[in-house]
Amino acid sequence: MSIGIIGSGALGANVARALAKKGIAATLSNSRGPDSLAALVQELGPSIKAGTTSEAASADVVVVALRWVDAEKVLSGLPAWKGRIVIDGTNPVEFLDPNSPDAKDPSNPLAAYGIKAVDLGGKHSSEVFKEFVPGARVVKAFNHLDVKVLSEPEVAGGKRVLFYSGDDAAAKAEVRKILEDIGFAPVDLGPIDVGGPLASLPFGSLAAQEFIRI
């Protein structure tokens, strides 16, 4: 089963690192093109190759590791998904310019962290995200932990718990296997309408919660 990663920032790069440590092949992409990833893929080793976003999106399982503000634009320009599995690693937050008025807005409880929540009109983020990838089987995962720990799923004699959710049992089984192969302890939160909001930043009750299974 082939794996593609769309987005090579902290999230995408650290998912790629976790895969690389286990020798699992994946195609990593970003909006700047494969040449911009030369140094990173050299660091990661032979199992990770650089590709275009279209090449990454053609994999059997596609990890979307994009900022929320970029997701719709990037994903809408890709070919039809045709039932492929898409892992939604996004969170509905906007990163603030530290010198902007928004960064000092006293009404924003997240301003001190350099982010603000995106107003989704009462919908949860994966509900909106599914509209960006029509025809895909969406599984929510990789979004609730600090991105810096994603490259180290095995720690302190145990495995980091990684939550996932989705509505397609077969798709969830494939994602669970990948998470287990990387070294995580996957925990199924059920349907995406339940698990998505629980694990999504910034306000999900399980967001940023780090558990270790011993």
Rank of each mutant, 00 (worst) to 15 (best):
G122C: 12
S54R: 09
K49P: 03
S47D: 06
A173W: 08
G23A: 04
K22R: 13
L162T: 01
P101Q: 08
L78S: 03
A39Y: 03
E127A: 14
F163S: 04
V118W: 05
F129C: 12
K148L: 13
A103K: 01
K172Y: 02
I182Q: 08
K21W: 11
A170V: 13
A208M: 14
E131N: 12
E94A: 14
K21M: 13
V74T: 10
S31V: 12
N108G: 11
N108K: 07
A173R: 09
L40R: 01
G77F: 09
A208R: 15
V149G: 14
A185Q: 14
A117F: 11
G7K: 08
D193R: 10
G23H: 07
G77R: 03
V41K: 00
P34K: 04
K21G: 09
V41A: 02
L28R: 00
D188C: 04
A103E: 02
L40Q: 03
V61K: 02
V64C: 11
K177A: 12
S126D: 10
E154T: 10
A170S: 08
G122F: 07
R176M: 15
K130W: 05
G195H: 03
S165Q: 07
G9T: 01
K148W: 09
P191R: 08
I48M: 01
A141V: 09
P186N: 10
A185S: 15
V118H: 12
L28N: 01
N108R: 11
I178K: 02
K49E: 12
L145N: 08
A141K: 03
G51I: 02
M1N: 13
G157E: 10
K22N: 05
E94P: 04
A156D: 15
A71G: 01
K104Q: 15
F203H: 09
L75Q: 05
V41F: 00
S100V: 07
Q42A: 10
F132Y: 08
S54E: 15
K159S: 10
S200K: 00
E152G: 14
I3E: 03
N14C: 00
A50W: 06
D193N: 08
D105M: 10
G89E: 07
